[in-house]
């Protein structure tokens, strides 16, 4: 009985909110990551639909809008990990510059520093060592997402 009570107390102490979670800042690890530069809000929140539709060429224009809007960007690897990019070649990603916008939806290989905290991966990209361009041509499957990304008038002009 005493052992059961002790175990129960230890279990209760593990309840979130009752004790601090393991969230102390971690040491940086040097890493090389290959992945697509994505808009993390649409990817995580599902606000525009499923994850497979909010990446690649289908979502390219929206990715430009979101990164220009200051929404955090991330590198999505083939294994499905997302590395939230906090700095890109010396500049914080809160400031939207030409480099940040020019690599949206591109498949990049980046060298940098990895920090992990509360289940998320944070990356300081020191150098983009390779850029394969936009390789995920998923507009063939999904069209553009959102559907109004390209104005109707522009579509008609392009189709002439």
């Amino acid at each position: 009985m005493t052992r059961w009570l002790l175990t129960a107390i230890i279990s209760l102490m593990a309840l979130p909110g009752l004790t601090p979670v393991a969230n102390a800042a971690a040491e940086a690890k040097r890493v090389t990551v290959t992945g697509e530069m994505i808009d993390t809000w649409c990817y995580y929140s599902g606000v525009m639909g499923g994850r497979e539709a909010v990446v690649g060429s289908a979502h390219h224009t929206c990715a430009l809008w979101c990164s220009a809007g200051g929404i955090p960007v991330g590198l999505l690897t083939e294994s499905g990990d997302v590395y939230l990019v906090l700095k890109l070649e010396g500049k914080g990603t809160g400031s939207v510059d030409e480099t940040l916008l020019s690599v949206q939806s591109d498949k990049l290989t980046a060298d940098g520093l990895l920090y992990e905290r509360d289940g998320l991966k944070y990356l300081v990209v020191e150098k983009i060592v390779a850029n394969e361009g936009l390789v995920n041509k998923n507009h063939e499957d999904f069209g553009v997402v959102p559907g109004f990304a390209i104005p109707k008038k522009t579509l008609k002009e392009l189709a002439k």
Binding site: S57, A58, H60, T61, L64, L101, S102, Q104, S105, D106, L134, K137, H139, V144, A149, I150, T154
Partner: peptide, 10 residues
């Protein structure tokens, strides 16, 4: 960016 790479980025 749209002028450089287009609406689809391609």
């Amino acid at each position: 960016q749209l002028a450089a790479d287009g609406w689809l980025g391609l």
